[in-house]
Design a protein around this nucleic acid. Structure first.
Lengths: 239, 239
DNA sequence: TGCTGATGCGTACGTCATACGCAGTGGAGT
DNA sequence: ACTCCACTGCGTATGACGTACGCATCAGCA
């Protein structure tokens, strides 16, 4: 009835059926969006681009996600993924927490766009809750009460997020020339010296990225360990 | 000459001059944008809204900033502001670094929208460089070499950023009901217990926010202190 | 063979960033 | 005094975006 009569008259194939595409599902939409964000970054994410990548029309996405904001939430949950398995470290809270921190950092490394999202107001999803639960369990052998374990977790979590910034994103330090140009009176002397020395070290270290991460992580865990001693055992204050 | 003759004939005030508005400057544009972001958040920031707040036309802004991305950069620099003065803490790297961390946190508290920006790729501006320089100088009495001081700074910086998330933004933990509903088998038992205990403590603490921040900061500095002892003095490893 | 709910999509609207070029202004050079 | 010109402000237009709305198609079932 709505078909143009030509087709009927000339007997063209009755192409009333849609081209056989895999059905659209919420999962496929979120997956495509994550892939797009991984490759081109969050700013490039638009409903139109996601739909295009799926070979669907823009408005079709709205059958599966309520809107873009909700899509981003779902993307975040998917990128976070299931909590790491720390069973192999049972009893050793320090090793378990270190593994947890590294797994956490890997998420940010795999999906850099999650980093700004992690520092924006949002609701905690099941995966993120599972990560938190895993870390709290890892800390159980420490003997700390639950609320103190939460504080420790905030600390470690904060460190991971903060240092992941320097994996991708984060401030690119100004060039030595720029520093010299704008601070000819030695205003940035220490910064320039530190950057120069760090560059030499990085060259020497060659293929060991993440050295700075491990350094900081060790310091954080030292601090926690000291605290646990003080809180559970005697006084562990370093003075 | 280009005036319509009516005005001339009827002697209306010669309103050829513009209404006497303060001239638009880059500073005024950036200031208005910061104020807008402070009040309504970064998503509400549009060139049109900024122009409106200034009583100017949208396109006028482009005479003073190249585009929105650059405006946001300038806003960030302005929000960061000048580095804190740590002269009063000369010689005491721990106290100076703690002050620096608190000042840093205050920036995020005053301008919550800077937090996601701080965790996105960007160039380091003069103010941010000055903050870094100030911290490196504060660490000079520790005796650490410049590159190691940079690592320490990354650590502290990361902690501040990470914990500032919980000032504003960050994951709002699910309600106890939600946890119970989705993990009836005790999947989130530790999390639920920790949240409940933390809530009780928060109620008891009453008007002392930032307690969690100070807790974590003390742990971080403990770790750094331990490291400095080990690196500069003898072996300070806690085992 | 019609009915019904689920799914895909075309159109339309409002908001956004911004390219382009004109118009008023005020100062410098004649 | 007059001309010129750089600077500043702005009106219009374009194209991308998110999404409300309602029609078209289809699978399953009566």
């Amino acid at each position: 009835m709505t078909r143009p009569p030509d087709d009927l008259l000339w007997g063209g194939p009755a192409e009333t059926r849609r081209p056989a595409r895999p059905r659209l599902t919420r999962d496929r939409v979120v997956e495509a969006a994550v892939r797009l964000a991984d490759v081109e970054g969050l700013p490039a994410l638009s409903m139109q681009r996601v739909a295009e990548d799926l070979g669907a029309a823009t408005m079709s996405l709205y059958r599966h996600v309520p809107g873009k904001a909700e899509l981003v939430m779902l993307m975040f949950e998917r990128a976070v993924g299931p909590a790491p398995d720390l069973a192999g470290r049972r009893g050793d809270w320090r090793a378990a927490l270190a593994d947890w921190a590294r797994a956490n950092r890997d998420v940010f490394a795999r999906h850099p766009w999650t980093l700004p999202l992690a520092t924006s107001p949002r609701a905690m999803g099941p995966n993120e809750a599972a990560w938190t639960e895993a870390a709290l369990r890892a800390l159980a052998p420490s003997g700390l009460p639950p609320a103190a374990r939460l504080d420790v977790l905030l600390l470690v979590n904060g460190y991971v997020r903060g240092s992941a910034v320097d994996l991708d994103g984060g401030p690119t330090p100004p060039s030595a020339q720029a520093l010299a140009a704008h601070g000819p009176d030695g205003r940035y002397a220490e910064l320039a010296a530190a950057l120069a020395e760090a560059e030499i070290e990085a060259e020497a270290a060659g293929g060991t990225p993440g050295a700075a991460f491990e350094f900081g992580l060790a310091r954080v865990l030292d601090g926690v360990q000291l605290y646990i001693r003080g809180a559970v055992g005697g006084s562990g204050r370093p003075g």
